[in-house]
């Protein structure tokens, strides 16, 4: 039914030049265009060390996530890669007893600079979580635009309609849900819920999108669909993805960082570089062991 109702592709292209001009939001074309909408941002950390209470979980991690690339963080469980990811958009400090040292630079500015509001940082650096977490008390439509309401951005009804469609299209969910935007978010399958969460993150136009094992709670088909979505998003947002799945890291990412912690040393990056090189010609024997499945 939706296929017959769908306009043909030329109409979609004309949507790009037809954006409503009255926006406090950055313009959002209806369909991902080939050229990036703006200069993409990169992320860099310098000597980041993190503690939970007395326990040090990360030690002097310096790493650069280049703009327009998909960066994968790999490593065994408990090596601090999720903590590292949550440090990037200041979600780390939500945990009681969490402490931090070092700098996280978004376009050269420290996100932990005094006076910088965490909410503003988090709006610019979006996050998708391990388990899909759509808001159960909101419809699909309201879920997608919830970021506007939650960060206090005003938008007219048409802008919101437009934003819902473009975000769902980018997340590859539009065709499946366009005829039931009023149903609750929890009524979707796990994979659809996760794509809804991706659409929700994209709706506030983040510069960076962090993904914390976004496929670990999903079946292989949904995983493949999400991976396609990630690949399509590459040109419009810089993505950092934590994954346990090394094939996934190989499939989706351009660069890669291998984290490792032992029981008496905190997590640190053993090796990083282009994904291709890390998997075919690792410099460190521990990386070679890990990517070849000999431990972890």
């Amino acid at each position: 039914m939706t296929d017959t109702a769908q306009p043909p592709s030329p109409v979609q292209q004309s949507g790009a030049q037809d954006d409503p001009p009255t926006v406090p939001l950055p313009p959002v074309p209806a369909v991902p265009a080939d050229a990036p909408a703006r200069a993409l941002s990169g992320l860099e950390t310098r000597e980041v060390t993190a503690w939970f209470g007395q326990r040090k979980v990360l030690e002097r991690v310096s790493f650069t996530m280049r703009a327009g690339e998909i960066t994968a963080l790999i490593g065994p469980s408990g090596c601090g890669k999720s903590t590292y990811l949550r440090i990037l958009n200041r979600m780390h400090e939500m945990v009681r007893g969490a402490a931090l040292a070092g700098e996280v630079l978004l376009d050269g500015e420290d996100v932990y600079a005094p006076g910088r509001r965490p909410a503003e940082v988090r709006r610019r650096i979006g996050m998708v979580f391990q388990r899909p977490n759509p808001f159960p008390a909101m419809s699909l439509y309201d879920n997608v635009v919830s970021g506007l309401k939650l960060s206090g951005i005003r938008a007219s009804r048409e802008e919101r309609d437009h934003l819902v469609e473009s975000s769902l299209r980018r997340a590859g969910l539009w065709d499946e849900v366009s005829n039931r935007l009023g149903t609750p978010g929890g009524a979707l399958s796990g994979g659809q819920q996760q794509r809804l969460c991706i659409a929700r993150s994209l709706a506030v136009s983040p510069e960076i999108l962090l993904m914390d094992e976004p496929c670990s709670a999903l079946d292989p088909t949904s995983t493949r669909r999400i991976e396609e979505t990630i690949a399509e998003l590459r040109h419009r947002v810089t993505i950092v993805i934590v994954t346990h799945n090394m094939q996934q890291a190989q499939r989706v990412s351009q660069s890669c960082a291998f984290f490792l912690a032992t029981h008496d040393t905190p997590g640190r990056i053993v090796e990083s570089g282009p994904t291709e090189r890390l998997f075919t010609d690792p410099a460190d024997p521990r990386t070679a062991d890990y990517v070849n499945g000999r431990f972890g």
Binding site: A119, R122, R123, F129, F135, A137, G147, G152
Partner: peptide, 25 residues
């Protein structure tokens, strides 16, 4: 807590999270 995290990750403050996410849920 995952819902609250999702809300914070979208750039919401504590008050908006309570009003738009916690209480409706």
């Amino acid at each position: 807590g995952t819902l609250k995290e999702a809300s914070y990750a979208l750039g919401a403050g504590q008050w908006r999270t309570v009003w738009h996410v916690v209480l409706p849920t």
